[in-house]
Write a protein that binds this DNA or RNA. Structure first.
Lengths: 192, 192
DNA sequence: ATTATCTTTGTTAGTGTTCACTAACTTGTG
DNA sequence: CACAAGTTAGTGAACACTAACAAAGATAAT
């Protein structure tokens, strides 16, 4: 799909965003980062917007395993734990991703980018909601609480954890902290 | 503290950010919005950074009641409910705030702005953590779960709810949805 | 096998636009 | 007549992007 040069550009773009935010992503910085001239970028992407779209696609591909691995578990609670830990594992080993996630909101101006981000978010929310609902149906998860609230708490706390990790300069072990969070969530929503 | 003109500029800045994101906040747009010339802005603020700082200060002042009202309740669970509902009430009646919250992350580049945002967040997190901990101590809140996890779930789901409300174009009733969330959180963390 | 041509990927130099901000001057008010 | 608050005109810097040309390899005709 993407040529080597294109991948190089995408990765450089992510680096630049992670370093100093989205406003650090300029064609000048991008070109300097991979040591080609600025116009050479336009041999590989139509314009800057296409680069940003490709960053999101790259992002979405890298995050895929976090959802695909869910089916390997049979229990709902195990799936939820995997959902949390796999997300954190991927972010942990691609720390730049954490910063790009927060820049998402900065993409506000471009209609197509907003749509892309919304679709990505909605997709994983729906998958998790299905897991929670079927867990409630088979009596694994308490059903005196709406699945929507449970999903909001899981994804909300997950996102906040990543935010805190990123803003703290990544000083704590994200995956370890995630295990604690995951265990606590399980305690709360498990049906006794 | 702020002159009338300064307040007018701050409010216009928030409008612009809410409308099309932080990159929509230009001196040109700001001037046009309040129908003065661009240089006139500099009679009231040293530069654009000072305007952004003032936006955050304005924000912080407006959000204050959400925390100050906590003391009127005696029970921890009531305080948590108030924490959630007051935040949502303020955001609900100042819808532009929701968008500005997400632009927070875009302030990345300016050291002083990051500090301001971090301080604001940390302050309310700590207050809520104290509420949770004393609730655990007096046996109102279950203590088989760390207060950190509980706080993360409350604030995480609160932020996500606001994000979803804002991204959906504010199509649902934020306060109503907040009541549901608050009730569900209470069910989960209440000691029986 | 050699030559001719096309395509890909790069370069240097420069475009117009937008940005935050300033200089210098003006006007209204106490 | 001092001062606060406005104006018009314009600054250099940064931005995304383009025009024109160069080099090198692949393809194809002779």
């Amino acid at each position: 799909m993407f040529s080597e040069r294109q991948q190089q550009i995408i990765e450089a773009a992510i680096n630049l965003i992670a370093e100093k935010g989205i406003q650090n992503l300029t064609t000048k910085n991008l070109a300097k980062n991979i040591e080609i001239s600025e116009p050479a970028l336009y041999r590989h992407f139509k314009n800057k917007l296409e680069i940003l779209k490709s960053v999101l696609d790259h992002f979405s591909v890298k995050m895929k395993p976090a959802i695909e691995k869910l089916n390997r578990s049979s229990k709902a609670l195990d799936k939820i734990e995997k959902f949390i830990l796999e997300h954190l594992r991927i972010i942990s080993s691609n720390p730049d991703f954490a910063k790009v996630i927060f820049s998402e909101a900065n993409f506000q101006n471009e209609e197509t980018l907003i749509l892309k981000v919304n679709n990505m978010m909605n997709k994983s929310h729906k998958i998790l909601e299905n897991v929670v609902q079927s867990g409630q149906n088979i009596g694994e998860i308490r059903n005196d609480i709406s699945s929507l609230s449970i999903v909001r708490m899981i994804i909300g706390s997950l996102r906040l954890l990543v935010t805190q990790w990123s803003m703290s300069g990544m000083i704590f072990n994200l995956e370890l902290e995630g295990k604690q969070l995951s265990a606590d969530i399980e305690k709360l929503i498990k049906k006794k």
